[in-house]
Amino acid sequence: MNNDIVAIKLDKERTLKFRRKELKRLENIFGKKISQINFEDIDIDGITKMIHAGLLHEDESLTLEKAEELIDSSDMSFGELTKAVMDAFSISMGGPRISGEETKN
């Protein structure tokens, strides 16, 4: 598996990855430079939008509404999904996994 993706289990195994395109989308969503995004300030809707953006590398037609449905039907807790999106974001910026553990599926 690639080192720049994080596996999650939704309706099936999927991966989170932030390319330049998705990082630019996050800047627009949060109204901040990518380097100023702080996870302590992000609410549930923000995490959901990050998960959605991180899934777009697999399917650019995925809507936010469909991503919400996938998140709500996942066997992973929202906390586990939050850790996964934090890891994927950190990796995209050249950092380590923030959670300090491999993502479970």
Rank of each mutant, 00 (worst) to 15 (best):
N2K: 13
G46W: 08
N38K: 10
L81A: 09
F18T: 10
D45W: 10
E22V: 10
D43S: 13
H57K: 05
I91Q: 02
K83M: 12
N3S: 14
S99A: 02
L62M: 13
I47L: 10
D87L: 02
S73M: 06
A88R: 00
E58G: 11
M93Y: 05
S99R: 00
D41R: 08
N3D: 14
N3T: 14
E22R: 05
M1L: 15
D87C: 06
D45I: 13
L23G: 05
P96R: 03
L55H: 06
T103H: 08
T48V: 14
L56E: 09
E27W: 07
S77M: 05
K9C: 09
G94A: 00
S77T: 15
E22F: 05
S61M: 01
G79S: 08
I42S: 10
P96L: 02
M1A: 15
N3Y: 11
N2V: 11
E68W: 02
I71N: 00
E40T: 09
M50C: 11
T63K: 03
T82N: 15
V85S: 03
A53G: 09
D72Q: 06
L62D: 03
L26E: 06
E27M: 10
S73R: 07
S35R: 10
R25M: 13
V85K: 06
G54C: 06
N105E: 12
M86F: 06
I34V: 12
A88P: 05
L23N: 02
L62G: 02
S90F: 06
